[in-house]
């Protein structure tokens, strides 16, 4: 007997019921997906091949569809530049006048600092390699603040790399594929960044909440923050290098400490990805675990000429010190008071 001839022949399920069944099944699937989401894990596996493949495809598609919007944005910039050129020029001149003394001071301090580092044998951090990228899409809602960048693993970008622009820290990479990577902004609700207050060296945690100004939480010490204090990355935990400029502290309307980000001074368009993973990347483990003065034992033996020069210098120093020391039992009264020993 064929199925259509059976007792279900005249059975008709209302369309609304079937739609409701599909809806309920899809809602259950959504809840299971939320429970299984591992977006916040800092591992490459958490990003997953599906997200990676999607991002790899979304980058070029966005580049094509967004072309008219980019053109309009450039056109408005051009118009703004045309009409505000004079005031911009005045502002830049004033800023240049202010910064000239700072430049000279910075050069002098860099010189002195370099000499101190050489004298003390400090292990300074070597320069970190960078990859330049362009922001190709942006999500700026309350629930997610992230951007797609057009540089990926082919340029050495890896998950966890910090991202900066010309003004300061912008965020960090949370997903990377061959040619595209995803950056989580400091303002995202899931973002946590260890920071320090430049004036007091107090530590704090910068936590995003989807607004433009992330909160400053867990501030160590009493009265260690004032409005206008510069906030830098502390490097604690090894996720970011120490000293990256982040912003300026300010009181929020809710009374909490917040940070006005330097990176908000202009549109975040071109950025630089610091190819930095942690401190272990910068030095070999053997060098990191070596005792502080181990370098002295590894110094080469002096040549005969160098040994003679060192001996000669030491003898001269000893003679000079002996001559400067006053005699304990003088044979004749001194004509003048002896020079005090230095």
């Amino acid at each position: 007997m064929a199925f259509r001839d059976g007792p279900f022949e005249s059975l008709k399920v209302p369309l609304a019921w079937t739609a409701a069944v599909v809806t309920v099944v899809a809602i259950i699937a959504s809840i299971l997906m939320i429970l299984g989401d591992r977006r916040h894990d800092a591992t490459g596996e958490a990003y997953g091949p599906v997200r990676a493949g999607f991002d790899a495809g979304a980058g070029p598609v966005n580049g094509i569809l967004a072309w008219p919007v980019r053109w309009a944005g450039n056109a408005t910039d051009y118009v703004k530049g045309y009409f505000f050129a004079v005031s911009e020029n005045r502002r830049l001149r004033a800023e240049l006048e202010d910064l000239r003394p700072w430049r000279d001071q910075a050069i002098a301090l860099k010189n002195v600092n370099g000499r101190y580092e050489a004298m003390l044998g400090l292990r300074t951090e070597p320069p970190v390699a960078m990859a330049t990228a362009r922001s190709i899409s942006e999500s700026r809602g309350p629930f997610i603040n992230a951007r797609l960048l057009d540089a990926g693993t082919s340029k050495g970008v890896r998950i966890g790399n910090p991202v900066i622009n010309e003004d300061g820290l912008v965020g960090r990479v949370v997903g990377a594929t061959g040619g595209v990577s995803r950056m989580l902004l400091l303002t995202d609700v899931a973002s946590r960044t260890p920071v320090l207050i430049d004036r007091t060296d107090a530590r704090a945690m910068l936590t995003g909440d989807g607004s433009g100004n992330p909160r400053l939480e867990f501030v160590r010490g009493q009265d260690s923050v004032q409005a206008g204090d510069r906030i830098l990355s502390s490097g604690d935990g090894g996720g970011f290098p120490r000293g990256l400029p982040i912003g300026v502290a300010a009181k929020g309307i809710d009374g909490s400490w917040r940070v006005k980000l330097f990176s908000d001074r202009g549109a975040v368009d071109y950025v630089r990805v610091l190819l930095f993973q942690d401190f272990g990347q910068l030095v070999t483990p053997d060098a990191l675990n070596a005792p502080p003065l181990a370098g002295l034992g590894a110094a080469p033996a002096p040549t005969a000429a160098a040994a003679a020069a060192i001996g000669d210098a030491a003898a001269r120093r000893d003679r000079a010190a002996a001559a400067a020391t006053p005699a304990t039992t003088p044979t004749v009264p001194p004509a003048a008071p002896a020079r005090p020993a230095e």
């Binding site: 989401d37 977006r39 997200r51 899409s137 997610i144 949370v174």
Partner: peptide, 15 residues
């Protein structure tokens, strides 16, 4: 996927 949020968030809200 496009905004980079929690997977399943917007399907749940839309449905």
């Amino acid at each position: 996927m496009f905004w980079g949020g929690t997977l399943g968030l917007w399907p749940l809200c839309l449905l």
